[in-house]
């Protein structure tokens, strides 16, 4: 299998007062299609920063990020947004749903923004709702759902355009352990059944165990890439 993600000398510096702090230092990683990768490390190690750089939401200070062989930092904003819609799916710790839209409207957002007809995606919607177990709650708004259910909506939104890659930032960090396990099993199922590459940032060893690969980070550097 080829690399879906590749980074070259990826650096990210932040300004703190008058000082420049290096958050990521020359990161070089390769992630193959179909992998389920967990990035772990202590707070401040730069794992979330890395995830957002991989998703093109943040821009590196230097170095490159290749998604399916394309340098995303050479892309214009519009191209990046197309990439985020069609190739990537993001899942956040705090779900980040649009509160004034219903479950199905939230899920269909990438479709709507991609100028595709929502009617053409009804089957996928039904299937995904079935997978995440929210078929009965499709007309609810996020505030009427529990945390776990909201995270399921976020996952469904990430899946609707059948992306090649899902980036998840502490997806179970805000959930109780039972719900967390359910979500991780859902991720595992998606990875196994649909072959979607998943990269998650997590503090939980248990959550990391669902993946096939672990990247440990410390002080902005990759410590040990391990195959599970």
């Amino acid at each position: 299998m080829g690399n879906i993600i590749q980074t070259e000398k990826l650096c990210k510096n932040f300004k703190v007062g008058s000082n420049e702090v290096a958050v990521l230092k020359d990161i070089e990683i390769h992630i193959e299609s179909g992998d389920f990768v967990s990035i772990m490390g202590p707070s401040g190690s730069g794992k979330s920063t890395l995830l957002y750089l991989l998703g093109g939401i943040d821009e590196p200070s230097s170095g490159q990020v290749y998604i399916q062989g394309k340098d995303i930092n050479r892309m214009k904003d519009k191209e990046k947004s197309i990439l985020r819609r069609r190739t990537l799916g993001f899942v956040f710790q705090f779900y980040n749903l649009v509160q004034n839209l219903t479950v199905e409207e939230n899920i269909m957002l990438p479709v709507t923004m991609d100028k595709k007809k929502t009617a053409d995606f009804q089957e996928q919607l039904d299937e995904i709702l079935e997978i995440v177990g929210l078929s009965e709650r499709r007309k609810y708004t996020p505030r009427e759902l529990s945390g776990g259910q909201q995270q399921r909506v976020a996952i469904a939104r990430a899946l609707i355009l059948s992306p090649a890659l899902i980036l998840a930032d502490e997806p179970i960090g805000n959930l109780d352990s039972k719900t967390g396990t359910e979500i991780m099993e859902l991720f595992h199922r998606i990875n196994q059944e649909k072959g979607i590459t998943i990269v998650q940032v997590t503090h939980s060893e248990e959550a990391a165990a669902y993946g096939n690969r672990l990247i440990r980070m410390k002080d902005g550097e990759v410590v040990e890439p391990i195959l599970v």
């Binding site: 939401i57 519009k78 947004s81 993001f90 956040f92 649009v98 957002l109 990438p110 709507t112 990430a158």
Partner: peptide
């Protein structure tokens, strides 16, 4: 959120 998931 909109930017991160689907919009430029």
């Amino acid at each position: 959120v909109l930017y991160s998931v689907c919009m430029s």
